[in-house]
Design a protein around this nucleic acid. Sequence first.
RNA 1: UGGGGUGUGGCCAAGUGGUUAAGGCAACGGGUUUUGAUCCCGUCAUUCGCAGGUUCGAAUCCUGCCACCCCAGCCA
Length: 565
Amino acid sequence: MDKESTRGPDFIRQIVADDVAQGKRDGRVQTRFPPEPNGYLHIGHAKAICISFNIATEFGGKCFLRFDDTNPEAEDTEFVEAIERDVRWLGFEWDDLTHASDYFPKLFELAVTLVKDGKAYVDSLSADEIRSYRGTLTEPGKPSPHRDRSVEENLELFEGMRRGDFDEGQHVLRAKIDMASPNMNLRDPTLYRIRKVAHQRTGDTWCIYPMYDFAHTLSDALEGTTHSLCSLEFEDHRPLYNWLIEQLPVPHHPQQIEFSRLNLMYTVMSKRKLKRLVEEQYVDGWDDPRMPTLSGMRRRGYRPVAIRDFISRVGVTKKDHLIELGSLESAVRDDLNEHAQRRFAVLRPLKIVLTNYPEDKVELLEAANHPNRPELGSREVPFSREILIESEDFMEDPPGKFRRLAPGREVRLRYAYIIKCEDVVKDESGNVVELRCTLDHETRSGSDQAQRKVKGTIHWVSAEHAIRANVSLYDRLFRVPTPDRAEGDLEDHLNPDSLEVLEKAALEPALANADPSEPFQFERQGYFVVDTARAAGDTLEFLRTVSLRDSWAKLEAQALQQAKS
RNA sequence: UGGGGUGUGGCCAAGUGGUUAAGGCAACGGGUUUUGAUCCCGUCAUUCGCAGGUUCGAAUCCUGCCACCCCAGCCA
């Protein structure tokens, strides 16, 4: 149910459509999403996933999930499983699941071909030496003394590398391209390095592993990718990508197209930084609701359809961008507004005694599950003499525009009665601890005389029937819009108020057996969901997915601004 | 001072030489409302990084300049 965009096809779809129209590659379309299993997927990956999977579907093609598992030191099956789960959760199913490691034998063969053709050589310089020989951005590199080894010697050495005759770092295999190229990627890039580490899939079969450019390009070419869609930072790699495909006898000639990656304000998207937040326990784990990971968003209560909608709202271009959080939240709200059933929950309770309501009386009042969707039915909410309201719905000395409860003022209790505040009870230190109100018996919701209008309507919960719950309120993880670019350490920019746990929340009884997979709107508050990861004892745990749009809060903020200036 | 990219309203983004420069988010104003929500209506770029040029006509073509991003892993 993604919202239909009125905008024309993006530049990638235009290219693919042209290719198909011209019968390029027999009009076949095949894409792939190639994550490295060294971390969890985040919202930036969701963009890449949507692009590749959707384009394949739109053109009647295929999309593979391929693990780019060429660096066994960083990779782990935990990540493999998480990635598969997250891709499926987002709503996509791959036509085939492959691994760069599936191609290790063929990749080795192709490397040998390159050596035989004199297009690759074994270099025995140290990593430091290679770096210094590479030159700089403005100065050309110089050839390694090993650059002109004979094919025979190279073959022997490369076989030796493969057999495990050498230590890590002793040799690498390099492409022989152009040490003076203005494109650093063409200055004899490393193709293979020795790593005496077991691989999560191939075990000890290999002690040499291909580098990204070699493995990725040729995996594409081997499995029949037609359009290799990736992010902008690989633009400089495209000449190398094409070079490899031109040099080697591969069955397919894919085309690489780059788009800008997704950046969101007030968060970070680099796997390295996310990993650090997890490992140094600034967050609860990869699925912490403040994380931009898909698992975090899932726990937060964002639904796949909302994420897909957000991605399509953002579009596909080559322009670097930085997207406001509001844009994501708007997509999340649009989905939840449509699908979440409404409930009453009082987050910070203030007790009210209805002095003219019988002590032992309980009424069951009907409340709609969704005001705009009557087909979703209703539930009964118990009402009694003692109720709880949101403490911020009462002000002793309210500003002009305040429409809620105040001494001598009336409000409508939603789906119930109009009440009037008669008395304010305070403790020794002057805090308001209880309100004594009278109720207008003529104004019960649905009754003939219920039409009387008052300025405000508030939600409530019967004190006697309330269910206790903890409610976690999450906010942005960082307090600066671009923590990546900000001065100082990452942790200096963390938002100290990114989590507030309310331990006195009171819920209406209908929430007692809430289905953890079902989102709710706590009326006038926001969208909430059961926090399964937190549910330990017998206390109910909810978390706030996103607040409701709040024009009152905005007014208050503006008033505060004016008071300051 | 090398190479590769990108510049359209606060944030995204259509636009592919020819009516008044789409749309979304945000903001602002108004209407409906027993959620200060939703919904609905309206306002919001005489101008497309800047300066020249070509053209009857330019965001779209040309030239120059400026700004920002990426690249010197045996990471991906």
